[in-house]
Design a protein around this nucleic acid. Structure first.
Length: 435
DNA sequence: TCCAATGGTAC
RNA sequence: GUUGUACCAUUGGA
């Protein structure tokens, strides 16, 4: 380990322990508003750690066209950070507009608008996040699982499983364009619950208001937080924490709320509770000026294996299970949802089918597939039942490989699926359905 | 135990 | 052309 790595590690630890200190302070004093946070943002340890974190993502440049390579080779990492340090200290830092990029959404033809801040802005946002996130973490509720440290989708699934044991009705709610419809003033009001430092509040307000540069035209932003902004996920959680708080305090008896960013379900015992839950949600959304996506929101009966609902990439449905005494019980199981199955198939098709792969080494090809297999298996292999569905993907991969082989060697003897199976075990092709 | 790079998922 | 947060996993390094 060299000196540079060591100092970076020490800075990281220092920044980390600062965050923990803030967390404990905020937890011990739940009503406290923090007024001296701005100066922490440009602390050398925080700023440098923020830079390293942003750099690790290897993202592209913002509107100023400054890339990581340019900053490191032409400007110099230290010069860049020093000038940013001075700008923050003298309060002359000004965020620049975000760059508009459209990317395809999931599997449909819809496009999703990204707002890419400049690298400099991303660093300052990261530093700010490191300072304010610990404070808000103390307020966030158990029902919230998305974008939060030490929490993941599998924990949300576990919560659903647990709640499903005494639930028969599930309300599945989707919010229309959540990030893009966050109300600035209402969000700032929620931030002010714990942060009273005006300079920090000003920074956040500026990031919300900078505007979007779309094809050389600057459009102001009155609504929403840029998808691509480093603190946007945190702000999104602060905004919907309003819902979590109200639910926990007043409506927890109606059902169990499980939220992952803007995707949420409520598991209720009776249909009456479920319907009432929808009414409550509607009222809360109205206060937050958010709109329910009626096409994607549903009320589902999960009393047996007939009804199910999609959540976090899984289709959730009760499956029958025969107990020792012959009695049949129903348990909630998670299987990859239709869209997820399609996406997995597409991923392997895109990887194996291109003509460029026809000349590539078999070991490398299999190695590339294996990496993807391990990653996917790792998310979707959640239960024995889920493996039945993953098995289909394994066969699809073999099908693609058979096609690939028969195309590659333009010889007469076309190979069968089974001979490929034998060959692939030789190359240690991994399977989604087997550990 | 910790670090970095790279693969996957959710949103 | 692809941003962001979080998590998980694998490999490698001490």
């Amino acid at each position: 380990m060299n000196v540079k790595q060591m100092t970076n590690t020490m800075l990281k630890q220092k920044a980390e322990s600062f965050g923990q200190m803030l967390y404990h302070c905020a937890k011990a004093q739940p009503k406290r508003k923090f007024h001296a946070l701005y100066d922490k943002i440009y602390r050398p340890d925080i700023l440098k750690t923020a830079w390293l974190k942003v750099k690790a993502n290897k993202g592209s440049a913002g509107v100023d066209r400054l890339t990581f390579d340019y900053i490191q080779d032409e400007i110099g990492e230290n010069n860049f950070l020093n000038s940013l340090y001075l700008k923050l200290k003298n309060q002359t830092y000004q965020p620049q507009p975000v760059k508009r990029v459209w990317i395809p959404k999931g599997n449909s033809k819809d496009m999703r608008p990204l707002g890419i801040p400049t690298i400099e802005d991303r660093v300052v946002q990261q530093a700010t996040k490191m300072v304010i996130e610990p404070i808000f973490e103390t307020m966030f509720k158990d029902s919230s699982y998305g974008f939060r440290p030490n929490r993941n989708a599998h924990q949300a699934m576990k919560a659903i499983r647990k709640a499903s044991q005494k639930s028969y009705w599930v309300v599945d709610i989707d919010i229309k364009g959540y990030f893009d419809n966050i109300h600035h003033d209402k969000l700032m009001k929620l931030v002010k619950q714990r942060v009273s430092d005006r300079r920090v509040l000003k920074l956040i307000r500026q990031w919300l208001k900078v505007g979007v540069l779309d094809e050389k035209e600057l459009k102001p932003s009155f609504l929403g937080s840029p998808q691509g902004g480093v603190i946007s996920p945190l702000l999104a959680n602060i905004y919907l924490n309003y819902l979590d708080t109200i639910w926990e305090k007043r409506y927890a008896s109606l059902g169990t709320l499980v939220r992952y960013a803007d995707d949420m379900v409520i598991l209720c015992h009776t249909k009456k509770d479920a319907i009432q839950s929808i009414q409550i949600l509607k009222a809360v959304f109205q206060k937050l000026e958010l709109e329910m996506n009626l096409d994607k929101s549903r009320l589902v009966n999960i009393w047996d294996d007939k009804g199910g609902f999609d959540f976090l990439g899984f289709h959730n449905r009760k499956f029958p299970k025969r107990k020792k005494n012959g009695q049949v019980m129903y348990f909630l199981e998670h299987i990859p949802k239709k869209g997820a199955m399609k996406k997995m198939r597409q991923t392997f098709k895109d990887y194996i089918s291109p003509r460029s792969k026809l000349v590539c080494n078999t070991m490398d090809l299999i190695d590339g597939i294996n990496r993807k297999v391990v990653g996917m298996r790792n998310y979707y292999r959640i239960s024995p039942i889920a493996t039945r569905w993953l098995n289909r993907i394994d066969w699809y991969i073999l099908e693609l490989l058979t096609l690939h082989y028969n195309k590659r060697r333009n010889n007469k003897n076309k190979r069968s699926n089974l001979s490929i199976v034998r060959e692939m075990t030789k190359y240690r092709l991994k399977k989604l359905s087997v550990v």
